[in-house]
Design a binder for these strands. Structure first.
Lengths: 332, 332
DNA sequence: TTGAAAGCGCTAACAC
DNA sequence: GTGTTAGCGCTTTCAA
């Protein structure tokens, strides 16, 4: 493999001139520039970025920690991140943590060993994260997290979004509204639950934890929850799932039990996966701006990497409430 | 940031000893090893992999070129790749090409500049690829491609799989079977079409290109194709979509037109996305072993990177035919 | 078993 | 505008 020295020899200049021709062409004479260019073309020289990065103590790679790449919501965010990473000259290192702190730690070693310059975390901040993510010497930004993240973050207002959904159901006449949450210690779940409760309270509907079932954001857990709802004496007339995957599972569960949606029971989701428009019935849900979340996160991280100050710590992107076929007024 | 020299000083040994203690501990005396270990602990030394990789002329990263990360099939394959990459000590660099050759070229520069050691390509080989992927000095493996890939590859037998589907429909009594293909120059599409034609021919059913509609693997194109089918005079009684996304779109299209599935028309997919089990009706489809495709691809690439010879060029993994609710005998 | 020293490819003072 | 040279952190020959 050719190197800068070889180019210098062929061009009849010094390696410094070659280096400058590549990085600061304005500091090199026309004539030298041409000689260097010709030499490069002639021997097919490609700069060794490994050496360059080593010199700069920078990997020009960022680590994206994603809980589950197979979830289309996350993969869309990652696409957004990658978009702008490319433009800024950064590579994206993939870290699918499977929601395991241990695997996450494993990936974070890439930072210690200089193989990544910064991190974008795609899960809500947790209590125990203080030691690993806060006050560290590497830049971290959180995308699609929650209120109260102690480092720069970009997200939607989860509580407000979920409240909108429940407000709407109440406006349709529902008074017994169930929920399928995420795991109880999941911050998203807590926030969305807050919105759910706020809507109920505002309408004077008492909170009943018997119709709040814990899921884990998987389709299967949604199906499972639906089955539990169908066996209840005083079954809800509407169920809000805290993400689309569980909503899809719930729809299947209710249908399998012989219920019609939305006639017998309304169902809502959260995320607005592409498939939400295709299932039957189409899903009423909250659209998160997945791509923009990714764009913004990477832009923030890039600014941090450049040593710029951020004007805000928290960026809240607008969500959209998508009313579709899976919701209707309760039967009377 | 601490370096090996600092460790050496604290430990009272030479940097060579520290280096050896780290990479070849068996070549260092017990005593020295302990001194080094203590020093490392004391100053919290972490080796600089940027320097190490530079020395070895290796990035220990592999580039995964994926046509569309938002497609759950691909993201699952990528998860599989990442699984074993991690275990082998390789990082995964993400390259979402959006099916654009230009973006792909852009990513391949990572190879020229030594930022990636090899490539896994997740799309079928094309004619024009000869120059970029064949006879190059970097290792490439193709995953989920097609027959006739001129470099190591792992895939299923697309033609046979699609033939199984059509055979099954014929066995149910269908004689007018439509198809929703991928883009006409897509090799997967060509292969699956081959299986489709083979099944028809075997059953003595003439091929009719009026009921073969070109899609682009997106849900939308499936929906679109279904609309076209519903407007036909002599409408098919079954439609095979060449992937699940288009099948999902087609199901929606047919339902919107007032048709029942499978009573009025049978629909099949290809891939077996998780959601195929959840939509209504559940989708009859071909299950590709997405995770295993990823595992195998990375294992192959790793062997190539280690300079080992591969015993085969082509690895064919078993697929599975999943019969679900979206197919039934035609009405008579 | 250990240490001294060269060198991987590149950049950036510094001197001319 | 250009060249010489030191050095980034690490591994590895070679010699002791």
């Amino acid at each position: 493999m050719s190197n800068i020295r070889e180019v210098a020899k062929v061009a009849g200049v010094s390696i410094a001139t070659v280096s400058r021709a590549l990085s600061n062409p304005e500091k090199v004479s026309e004539k030298a520039l041409k000689k260097v260019q010709d030499a490069i073309d002639q021997i097919g020289y490609k700069p060794n970025m490994l050496a360059r990065n080593f010199r700069f103590h920078r990997s020009y790679a960022i680590l994206v920690l994603v809980p589950d790449l197979a979830n289309p919501f996350f993969s869309t965010v990652v696409k957004g991140i990658e978009d702008v990473a490319r433009k800024k000259g950064f590579n994206v290192l993939l870290g699918d943590s499977r929601d395991s702190l241990e695997r996450e730690q494993e990936y974070l070693k890439l930072i210690d060993t200089r193989q990544a310059d910064g991190v974008i975390q795609l899960r809500p901040h947790r209590e125990g994260d203080e030691s690993t993510f806060v006050g560290t010497d590497f830049p971290v930004v959180n995308a699609c997290g929650c209120v109260g993240t102690p480092y720069p973050s970009v997200r939607i207002d989860n509580a407000a979004a979920q409240k909108t959904v429940v407000d709407y159901l109440i406006s349709l006449g529902h008074t017994r509204i169930g929920a399928i949450t995420g795991l109880s210690d999941n911050a998203h779940s807590k926030n969305r639950l807050k919105g759910y409760k706020a809507a109920l309270e505002q309408a004077g509907i008492p909170y009943d934890d018997k119709i709040v079932i814990e899921g884990d954001y998987s389709k299967w857990s949604g199906l499972n929850a639906a089955t539990q709802f169908t066996h209840m004496d005083h079954r809800p007339t509407a169920v809000v799932a805290f993400n689309d995957q569980m909503a899809i599972g719930a729809v299947k569960g209710f249908k399998s039990a012989g219920l019609s949606i939305p006639e017998d029971i309304s169902v809502t989701g959260f995320d607005d996966l592409e498939v939400a428009k295709y299932i039957d019935p189409t899903l009423t849900t909250i659209a998160q701006p997945a791509t923009e979340l990714g764009h913004t996160a990477m832009n923030l991280l890039h600014r941090m990497l450049e040593g710029q100050e951020l004007s805000q710590q928290e960026y809240i992107l607008p969500h959209e409430f998508m009313v579709r076929e899976s919701t209707a007024a309760p039967k009377r």
